[in-house]
């Protein structure tokens, strides 16, 4: 068979345009006199073209519940520390963290409950809904989430009410300053569990605030 059809094993390469020029010319000379190979070339091309038109299909049942059960168990809560006695540098850092109360106004605005609250309302307490990140992720995942959320909010800020954007940006600036001060204090006293806990809490508040804003963008 291959004596009569020496190019048979290379016909798919020919159909895909992958043969070098000299081989392609030789094969085409063969095709001029071989009806079988011409037919095969047509069939191979048809198979390839048909494969490219295959439609995707939905699974026969909803697979999400099984996925949700598995990733629910794979989530973890950001760690929060216990309360400790404060030293002077720690007090300074904690005072900086109190500035975070400004985020409360943004949170109210993002709930869509009305006019954003201009001034401090209350100290933002640890919320009941824990911020979870994939179990295999760590600080890099947090940074990536903040980066992605920040990019989304920048690209879609025109979907949000300008007053909301203003409050959001001010609150995030405040939180970032608080985070920076806490990090500075931690640089002085890196083993301080209280500072670590407050830094984690402040970072969580930032993430929650950005998530609420992104959720508003998604719903807009």
């Amino acid at each position: 068979m291959t004596n009569r059809h020496p190019w048979m094993a290379r016909l798919s390469e020919y159909v895909d345009g992958e043969l070098p020029a000299d081989e392609r010319l030789a094969l085409e000379r063969h095709l001029e006199t071989c009806a079988d190979c011409r037919a095969t070339v047509t069939q191979l091309g048809r198979v390839r073209d048909l494969a490219g038109t295959l439609a995707d299909r939905e699974p026969p049942r909803d697979l999400w519940p099984g996925i949700e059960a598995r990733i629910g168990g794979a989530a973890r809560v950001l760690p929060f520390g216990r309360r400790w006695t404060l030293t002077m540098p720690q007090l300074a850092a904690a005072a900086a963290l109190m500035i975070v109360v400004g985020a409360g106004g943004a949170a109210l605005a993002l709930r869509g409950t009305g006019t954003p609250v201009a001034g401090p309302v209350a100290v933002v307490a640890p919320s009941g809904d824990p911020t979870v990140i994939p179990a295999t992720a760590g600080a890099a995942s947090y940074d990536q989430a903040v980066t992605s959320l920040g990019r989304v909010l920048t690209e879609h800020r025109d979907r949000l009410d300008p007053a909301t954007v203003r409050v959001l940006e001010q609150s995030l600036q405040t939180i970032d300053r608080a985070i920076a001060r806490a990090q500075e204090a931690l640089a002085t006293d890196p083993n301080d569990a209280y500072l670590s806990a407050h830094l984690a809490e402040t970072m969580r508040q930032k993430l929650n605030l950005m998530r609420r804003a992104a959720a508003l963008v998604a719903a807009s």
């Binding site: 911020t131 990140i133 994939p134 989430a145 959320l149 990019r151 879609h156 992104a214």
Partner: peptide
Amino acid sequence: AVDVALAQSG
């Protein structure tokens, strides 16, 4: 992009 960012945050 929005959902990816939200999903990354948990």
